[in-house]
Design a protein around this nucleic acid. Structure first.
Lengths: 157, 157
DNA sequence: TACATGTTGTTGACATGTCAACAGACGCTA
DNA sequence: TAGCGTCTGTTGACATGTCAACAACATGTA
């Protein structure tokens, strides 16, 4: 009997393997890297991303909205998270001179110290658990493929 | 001046591209797929994974601990989540005959209906946003690479 | 049997993320 | 300069995840 309505195209073996592998890797890899980071530096990956983004920005200062956009976070999420980091003394909010609505983020001395201490072991962790497991060719393919998927996702909606 | 202490090996261009791409893709891809699933079926990806795991298991029944292990979730997380799904009438807990501590999960009729309705559009979504963006070769490479990283991660700790 | 130890799943406190409503500042237009 | 929609960031209520403590049961050993 022929199908009159086109059903979904189910996944073939390679596709299922890639999808399953991606999802399991995502879970375990992120967990392991977060564990290493917490153990080595007492930071969460969210903390690390905020600190490194601000430290690498021009003027070592970022508007909250720009940071949120760069990290693909909602403003609300960033606002909450920054409040927590502020309480721990890692970052500080400052007024944005030319726009009374805005606020910029800067690192405190403790924040600078934290990111400087955290970066080397974090990079080692990313290498050990991920990049060092890939051949040069696989690394390139992964870079290509993620870029293409991201380009596609930007066209959606 | 030569470095006396070996610093971290920083990432070269391809490595940075792969790592950055992976992280951005993970964020946006998961978000998009979750959005589609919520829109099409009113389920979260967590709901979907629970329902599909139980529906595909032998006997259509799973012990909570086994399900947690398979999903790479903590027992606590699963217990909380199952309680919420139970309240929505999607699953039911039942006693495990041969071990008084244990409990098994089954799908209610509504749960079966939900996973049957949700699966086709979800597979389409995964295809459209992810698998269809990859060449056959890239799909194979991704399968290989995730498998290797997972094998490595299992050896850690 | 009785005890010690391990296993299973639940619970409550807390950390984190989401969503919608909001206040204040901006800037265009009349 | 007044009005009006837009933009920026914050807030509070709520959903979800983590962690440690726990109760109940199972199992091994004397």
């Amino acid at each position: 009997m022929t199908e009159l309505v086109t059903g979904p195209r189910w996944l073939d073996e390679d596709e299922a393997r890639a999808w399953r592998g991606y999802r399991r890797m995502r879970t375990l890899l992120d967990l392991q890297i977060a564990r290493d980071l917490a153990h080595d530096s007492g930071l969460s990956t969210a903390d690390y991303d905020v600190l490194s983004s601000v430290s690498e920005s021009a003027g070592h200062t970022l508007r909250l909205g720009d940071l949120a956009a760069q990290m693909l976070w909602s403003k609300s999420r960033l606002s909450h998270h920054v409040s927590r980091m502020e309480q721990r003394g890692l970052v500080a909010r400052q007024e944005y001179p030319s726009d009374g609505r805005g606020a910029v983020l800067t690192l405190t001395d403790a924040g600078w110290q934290a990111i400087r201490d955290a970066a080397p072991p974090h990079v080692e962790s990313v290498r050990r658990h991920f990049l060092d497991q890939l051949s040069a060719e696989e690394t390139r393919v992964l870079g290509d493929l993620t870029e293409r998927v991201l380009t596609h996702l930007r066209t959606v909606q």
